[in-house]
Design a protein around this nucleic acid. Sequence first.
DNA 1: GATATGACCGCTG
DNA 2: CCAGCGGCCATAT
Length: 123
Amino acid sequence: MAAVFYERVYWVVRQIPEGRVTTYGAIAKAIYSPKSARMVGYALNASKNNSDIPAHRVVNRKGLLTGKFHFGGQQVMQELLANEGVEVVDNQIKDIERYFWDPIHEVDLEYLLENFQQNVEKL
DNA sequence: GATATGACCGCTG
DNA sequence: CCAGCGGCCATAT
């Protein structure tokens, strides 16, 4: 099931650098679907099979690890982040602004639109 | 093609 | 400051 929306989400998430995090809403904006933040989470849930997607670097806008229940163990997500130098306290990233990576400033929008528009026509 | 379901977000009181 | 609530919209069934 290659939904284009999912592919867009994965394309952005794969570009998040180590030790940085971003939010569902930021990704939604970056892929020109600013009101689909919930769907970003939905897409990440479907990406659990896909091991090349660093889903642990995506949290909600407060820095809460809302997706930790989807990582097998509740500590897994926190440990993955800690390994990259991100400090997590009480299920929340401490001082998220220090690690925040905003895809809207980093992503090649022209590439996104051109590349994924073709995929839309395929489907 | 209608209804249900979210790893969300922002505004209100 | 905290809690509740409604909007949102792509997939799944």
